[in-house]
Amino acid sequence: MVIPMQLSADGGAVITAVRDAEYTAEVTGGAIGSFSLTDVSVAYGRDRVIEGVTMDVPAHAVTALIGPSGCGKSTLLRCLNRMNDELGNVHVGGRITLDGQDIMGKAMDPVELRMRVGQVFQRPNPFPMSIFDNVAYGPRTQGIRSRTELSDLVEATLRSSALWDEVKNSLKKHAFELSGGQQQRLCIARALATRPEVILMDEPASALDPISTQQIEDTIAALKSSVTIVIVTHNMQQAARISDKTAFMLRESLEAPAFLVEMGDTKRMFTNPEDTRTESYITGRFG
């Protein structure tokens, strides 16, 4: 495949060019943004919290991680963009690949990984700056300085996160003036602006009202054609509504680490689970 190189004074345009090439690859069938986890374990100090997770996260689909509180869903999610590195004293074992490339080894720089794997957090966390600057933060970090390029990116990503029509005339407004739901859609736009292959979402609607939740879910549905989404959720109806694959995790006692009970097509998981514990959980008998 030929990667089109744009001649440009700054490095940013080159990054964009490479991304465009990847997006082209995706249109021509070589879908990108798939994870493969093999025997992944996580320990906080000596406390083993997750063990033996093996699963494949398909590209351009929504994968939901469900399970009771404290079952390690969010911890597992943070393995995918190496955010656990920032917590200190966290050891991740096993093997995780993104499009076949090992992301845990020394060869992968977490900074580069996080440009390819964005994250949306539980509570909306816009930066204390304007709406425009929030979305442009990632691209600027990548070295993009051109005002037109930034404006185009900001508009495109705000459209993708269904916020554009509400803010197009007030991009200079402080992000804190937006409502909670709008802030979360801003955070989605901000994560999209680095043109990631994957977006990780850690209970993105749990702090929002039902209407805002609905909007976030619509946004997720619209996004999955262009980006892989892995979402942690407490809300099983939500998992059933929006995901293609569901993974059910469980930590049966504080002495034993959490593990993956089963993973499969969402429809099958919710109608005909293989494991009785999955059935108990989704029918609301515990959790």
């Binding site: 963009n81 955010m83 900074v111 996080r114 964005g118 966390n125 930066f127 933060y137 970090t141 901000r190």
Partner: peptide, 25 residues
């Protein structure tokens, strides 16, 4: 808030950039 640091790091910013672009302001 720790959330802001996390948001910046998750966007591929280094720790130094996170500090001078988000935390210090």
């Amino acid at each position: 808030p720790q959330d802001l640091r996390q948001a910046s790091l998750a966007l591929g910013a280094t720790r130094l950039r996170t500090i001078y672009r988000v935390v210090l302001p």
